[in-house]
Amino acid sequence: MSYVSEIRSIIGHEMLLLAGANVILARDDGFILLQQRKDGTWGLPGGLLEPGESLEETAVREVKEETNLDINTLNFINVFSGAEYSFTLANKDEINVITALYFSTDWSGELRNDHTEGLQLKFYPPNRLPVPMDEEYSTYIRYYLSHKNHSDEEYR
């Protein structure tokens, strides 16, 4: 049983504070890797922090699990938190997420979708993102695009 499932068995649908990480994997041409979730929506690779794990470790682990890619260089972008990151899920679970956003242009391995994690992986130009996409992921991508410098390695 996962940590979140264990806590849910105790608190039911009540508000749960969750920390996690998402990663923008960008190619040299600027295209961004997106994952189509099992519910059909598109999002960024990433997931929830496990007990004892750092946010960086979460980012690297989740990318490996979902894409089969190994991140060689991970760059921090920002932390997103607050009331606007509170959601009620379809199953009535209430969550408030704290998300560390990272990006990488330096990875290795063969891109391979894990069908237990999502339906497909595909690179998209940032000005033509697929729909449907949760606003949370659109916000992260917009932030990334508006704050990246010419070097793609530094943020304001």
Rank of each mutant, 00 (worst) to 15 (best):
Y3R: 08
Y3I: 02
V4K: 05
E6H: 12
L16H: 11
N22G: 05
V23W: 02
A26H: 00
A26G: 02
F31Y: 06
L33I: 05
L34E: 05
D39V: 05
D39P: 00
G40D: 09
W42T: 09
L48R: 12
L49V: 14
E50N: 15
E53M: 15
E56M: 08
A59W: 11
V63I: 09
V63D: 02
E66N: 03
T67I: 08
N68V: 00
D70V: 11
I71Y: 00
T73N: 10
L74I: 03
F76D: 07
F76R: 11
S86Y: 02
K92F: 13
K92H: 12
V97L: 13
L101R: 00
S104P: 07
D106K: 13
W107T: 03
E110R: 12
E110Q: 14
L111M: 12
R112S: 11
H115T: 11
T116N: 10
L119F: 01
L119H: 07
R128I: 03
L129E: 06
L129D: 10
P130I: 10
P132G: 08
P132F: 12
E135P: 01
T139P: 02
Y140C: 04
I141H: 09
N149R: 14
N149P: 00
H150V: 10
S151I: 10
E153K: 15
E154Q: 11
Y155E: 06
